[in-house]
Amino acid sequence: MKKKVRPAVIRTGIRIPLILWAIAVLYPIIWMFIGSLKSNAEIYSNPWGLPESFNFQNFIDAWTNYNIDTSVFNSVIVTVMGMFLTLVLALPTAYAIERIKFKGSGILFTVYISAMMIPMVLGWIPLFFLLMDFNLLDNLFGLAVVYAISQLPFTIFVLTSFMGTIPKELEESASMDGLSPYGILLRIITPLSTTAIITVSIMNAIQFWNEYFMALIFLQSRTNYTLGLAIDFISSEAQYTNAWGTLFASLTIAIIPVIILYAIFQKRIAKGMTEGAIKG
């Protein structure tokens, strides 16, 4: 009898912190959605409660008066370009490192992987001048290139470990059939790696969509602002204009694509990130 009561008590006892933490995570996010539907006056009078009525004026304001439309467009451009570039650069390298025997392949892999642990903030100063020399400063393509290279080590890491699981026989028989190594890479390896390519691309896309600091350094004009910069700008302006509703609306716009991706690919994202951490 005693044995049965105790675990039940412990179980409820342990549930309490779990529930509290779940509230701590969800409440600010839900509150942000609610805030985006409130008028500024209501945010002041009743900051943490439910809205009296739903109005989408904040979204319209953010979209038209605060140039969020341009920033969304810029963020999409940078994210898509960055994602594509990362793949184009990482796929051949990952294949060569994983499947072709050559001197120094181990060293090359180590160089890429150790770049994942190095604080890049030192490199950002010379990179700033480098981009200036290349005429890529304050340029969305320049930022996409910088993003792509920054995610290269992680992408190579994920792709090599996945390609290791593809059976070698497939390449051998393709080569017997007269397919060149270029053909094997393009027609055999790339399609077979689709799972890994999707996982790594989603994670890169989220990374680029969310990125703030490199954009802060390498972009300057407001027409080039990505979402993070635009929101930060609205946030610092809101200290004076009190346009909190607009700020919440733009935060909501920034987070919705991430929530959608997470809803669809939750397992892959979680798995990809934990595996990325384990190599560390």
Binding site: T93, I118, G123
Partner: peptide
């Protein structure tokens, strides 16, 4: 042929990586 293919796979990526990651670190 093997080395040409290797170069095709590795060199462009490594050059960009060197320009945008290795060079800035040393230059810093």
């Amino acid at each position: 042929q093997k080395y040409v293919f290797l170069a095709f796979c590795l060199v462009p990526t490594f050059i960009l990586f060197s320009i945008f990651t290795l060079y800035p670190l040393f230059s810093g």
